[in-house]
Design a protein around this nucleic acid. Structure first.
Length: 282
DNA sequence: AGCTCGACCTGCACGC
DNA sequence: TGCGTGCAGGTCGAGC
């Protein structure tokens, strides 16, 4: 499910339930997520306060009292659901972890495919942790621009599709938003990434793509993310950005770019579907 | 070091 | 109805 806009939507939804709240009780119905939950996971969280809830790429980071960070990733199918303590929602299949918070909210992590995970690290480890240290720039930061994107693509022989999907080059994009950003920038997913590095036309392309990435992510966050199969906001509401897809899962539809008469095509790159317009995306 | 591809899981839509 | 196939919003790690 979740790319940056969905994770950001989840983060914002969890804030009122978790920020400055204590874990009153934690239960793990299944410990074998993508990786096993950390040893003594439930005992280590109990009584701890959430002092911050941030996002890095597709990771959710809960900063805990006592100098630890709870790292959470939603994988392909993870979601959180908030229910009221009294009105506790019935457990459903694939509810793996349940947090009962001092805010009165119960926060349930559900993940059918179990590609998601939770980890506990020391706060001081954040920068050097294997999963965190190599992550590329946050695309919505002011410092992310065409020049930064061009540099990150320097020397890369892979396609733009593969490069943008690589979390080391830019954080938070996945299959949907890579396709959407490339259509907005009118760049082919098959173009070599290195053609964004350099002066002149290369820097123009890089600037257009960086701007398209920011625009599509901003629009998607505003819509609460995209709900295809699994994604819901923690309050149960659906995201709405799937209604604004220009190319994703729209093979055969007319290209929405102004003045373009092409039709959207589906191809497979690196084993994943890509949707694009072969006429205007070059 | 960079790149490709298989593996990890479950559920669903499809065709026979 | 049932079964097989392929596909799905991610990403790690083996092998080149």
């Amino acid at each position: 499910m979740p790319e940056l806009p969905e994770v950001e939507t989840v983060r914002r939804g969890l804030l009122p339930a978790m920020l400055r709240a204590r874990f009153l009780a934690v239960s793990a119905r299944r410990e074998d997520l993508r990786w096993p939950l950390p040893p003594a996971f439930t005992a280590r969280l109990k009584g701890v306060t959430v002092e911050g809830l941030t996002r890095r790429g597709k990771y959710l980071l809960a900063e805990l009292s006592g100098g630890h960070i709870l790292i959470m990733h939603l994988g392909m199918s993870g979601s959180f659901r908030i229910s009221n303590g009294l009105d506790a929602a019935p457990e459903s299949a694939h509810d793996h972890v349940v947090f009962v918070m001092s805010s009165g909210a119960t926060v349930t992590f559900n993940d059918p495919r179990r590609f998601g995970f939770m980890l506990l690290i020391r706060s001081a480890e954040l920068r050097t942790h294997k999963l965190m240290r190599a992550i590329g720039p946050e695309p919505l930061d002011a410092s992310f621009d065409g020049a930064a994107l061009g540099r990150a693509c320097a020397g890369r022989t892979v396609s733009l599709k593969a490069a943008l999907s690589n979390q080391k080059i830019v954080a938070g994009l996945g299959n949907i938003y890579v396709c959407e950003a490339l259509n907005r920038a009118r760049l082919s997913p098959r173009r070599k990434a290195a053609t964004l590095d350099g002066r002149g036309a290369a820097s123009t392309r890089a600037a257009a793509l960086a701007a398209a990435i920011k625009a599509v992510l901003t629009d998607a966050i505003e819509a609460g993310g995209s709900s295809l199969r699994d994604h819901r906001r923690p309050d149960g509401e659906l995201g709405l950005f799937q209604h604004h897809f220009r190319v994703y899962d729209r093979a055969g539809a007319p290209c929405p770019n102004r003045g373009c008469t092409g039709r959207i095509r589906r191809i497979v790159q690196n084993g994943r579907s890509t949707f694009f317009c072969p006429v205007c995306q070059r």
